[in-house]
Structure formats: C-alpha cells, structure tokens
C-alpha cells in the first residue's frame, strides 16, 4: 500500500480578485521510505499541495475536491481533532523560512517539550531528555537548550525545525523548500543532515523545491508542477535522462552547471499563466516550443509512458 495517495486534488483560493486554482486536479502517490521531489516555478502551487496533506491550507483556500489517503486513511474525512493528532506525530512539515517559524518568546526547550507533551503522555523530565537527545542529533549543543530563537543563526534554526519535525518519529515529512533561505554551504549541510536522519528514521519525504539541482541530488522520484498541474512524474534518473514534457526539458537545461565560471542559464521565455484564469488548453501552451492547435483548446490527459513515467502533454 502506498503511504500517501493524492487523487485528483483541487485546492482553490477564493480570494477577493477571484478564484485562484492553486492546485487543480493533482494526483500523486508516495511509497514508504521514498523521497519524492516536487519541483516547479514559484507560484505553481507546490506549497499549497504540501499544506493540503496536513489540511493546513490557509483561508481563503479550500480543498474543493479530490481525496488524500494516508496509510489508507481518508484524511479529508477526519475531524479537525483527528487531523491535529496526526500532525507532527505521523506527518511533519518543515517550512521554508526558519527565521520566522519559531515562536520568538519561547525558548527551544519549550518548543520541543511542548510538542512532545502534546502527543505523548510522558512526564516532563523524560520529554526534556528526549529533547536533548534529538537536539544532539541535529547538532545543537545541550547548553543552548534554554536559548531563544533570536539567539540562533538561520542554519541552526532550520536544524531545530528538523529536530522538531523528527521529534515524534513521524512516517512522513513534508519539507517545503527547507533550504532555500539558507546560504549555499549551509544548504548542503542541512540537506545532508536531513538525508542522514531520513535514513536513520526510515522516513518518507516529500521535498518541495524550485531548485532542480537539489531535487536531482535528493529524490528518488520527481514530480514537476506547472501552474497547478503536475505535468510529469518519473524516477530521478529517468527524468534526468529522458524528460518528456517540453517544460521539464527546458527546466533541465536551465539548471546551472556546477562550476560558477561556466554558469550559463537557459531561461524559459515568458511567464506562467495566471491561476485566476488559467488557459483552457495546455497551461504551458503560451511558452511551448512544440505548441500545436490542439494544445490551445484541449487540456492534455495524463499519459503513462514506460514504467511509472507519467506526463501530461498532447505530444504523448
């Protein structure tokens, strides 16, 4: 059984300007122990997708239709309280900006102990021990346990966030651009830490990012998102070697080469469409080199090409 199975999910923001179709019919699944990278341009709905799994889509967002199964449980049919009990305990999330993800007036110990005591019936002393242990794992020294968030660097804060996520041995972690606010060196270290801990804890991971470099480095499988749609899913290597969708192809070309001197970016011309009034046909139509008449009027179906390689394009 799949650990996570998202079926035809639609999440819309009913904003004052109109309905923003942030996630518009996404199907996706995740195996146990797997790392799934979700990659796409800014604003394509990645975060919304991630938040949906925890049912944390903020107002005025609404999950309009679709299903999310976690371990066979239909998440959308659970009560608020039942979902709350899953959060942190079964599914944890790491956010993009560690600087503002900790409560400024609570120290680190309070954050962790509170999380433990919310989900587990153990006494405070045990909770503190557990806190110290996990902080040790992410490399935060014991003696800083009583320090407040503003006393830590960004990288340390993100490690604390990782500790907070791992704290209760969840089975799934959704990491939404966990490193994009950190500088490159720290980024690498943090990702390495995350990778190691994932192995150690036997977790599954959804890694949301707009950085193809990172996604190829870290994921077993990759889903490419474009304007509220998943337009391609494939195994890491398969996607790298054989990108099917024109958008994926363009993206892979745009990944900067490793050495800075050679940095040459292949930008994709144009902008993604507005999610308020998405085009009727293929959403990539306006920027696509291979666009044809049909692409303008008909939304492409998802096609499975080869083993587990899914693509949403009229070419296939």
């Amino acid at each position: 059984m799949k650990l996570l199975d998202i079926k035809n999910l639609r999440v819309y923001y009913f904003s004052e300007e109109g309905v923003v179709k942030a996630v518009d019919g996404v199907s996706l699944s995740l195996n146990k122990g797997e790392t799934l990278g979700v990659v796409g341009e800014s604003g394509c709905g990645k975060s919304t997708l991630g938040l949906s799994v925890l049912r944390l889509v903020p107002y005025p967002g609404k999950m309009v239709s679709g299903k999310i199964f976690y371990n066979g449980i239909d998440l959308l049919s659970l009560s608020d309280e039942e979902v709350r009990k899953l959060r942190g305990k079964e599914i944890a999330m790491i956010f993009q900006n560690p600087d503002v993800s900790l409560n400024p007036i609570m120290n680190i110990k309070e954050h962790l102990v509170e999380a433990i005591l919310t989900h587990e019936e153990i006494d405070e002393r045990e909770a503190v021990e557990k806190t110290e242990e996990i902080l040790g794992k992410v490399g935060i020294p014991k003696n800083r346990i009583n320090d407040y968030p503003h006393q830590f660097s960004g990288g340390m804060k993100q490690r604390i966030m990782i500790a907070l996520a791992l704290l209760l041995n969840p089975k799934l972690i959704i990491a939404d651009e966990p490193t994009s606010s950190l500088d490159v060196l720290i980024q690498a270290k943090t990702l390495e830490l995350l990778r190691n801990l994932k192995e150690e804890y036997g977790l599954s991971l959804i890694l949301i990012t707009h950085d193809f470099g990172v996604v190829f480095e870290e994921s077993d499988r990759i889903a490419v998102m474009y304007a509220g749609h998943i337009i391609e899913i494939a195994k890491n290597t398969e996607l790298y070697d054989k990108p099917l969708h024109p958008y994926t192809q363009a993206l892979i070309k745009a990944v900067p080469t490793v050495t800075p001197e050679e940095q040459k970016l292949n930008y994709i011309l144009g902008m993604p469409p507005s999610l308020l009034t998405p085009p009727k046909g293929c959403r990539f139509y306006a920027r696509c080199k291979y666009a044809r008449e049909i692409c303008k009027f008909k939304e492409p179906k998802t096609a499975t090409v080869g083993r587990e390689h899914i693509v949403k394009c009229h070419l296939y």
Binding site: L54, L56, P58, R84, K85, L86, R87, G88, K89, A92, M93, F95, N97, V100, S101, L102, N103, P104, I105, M106, E114, A115, T118, H119, M161, L164
Partner: peptide
C-alpha cells in the same frame, strides 16, 4: 498569520495553546 503559528499547527499543537501562547502572548 505568522509562520510560527502555521509551524506550530503543523506540529499538532492545540488551537487553544496556539491562540494564547503563540498569538496572544506575542
């Protein structure tokens, strides 16, 4: 609407605690 409130929710912290300890106290 702060990120730390969203993060706390994602940890399953109870709404009451979020309201008082996170939102109100701040």
């Amino acid at each position: 609407n702060e990120d730390y409130v969203r993060a706390a929710r994602a940890r399953g912290i109870k709404e009451r605690v979020i309201l008082f300890k996170y939102a109100l106290k701040n």
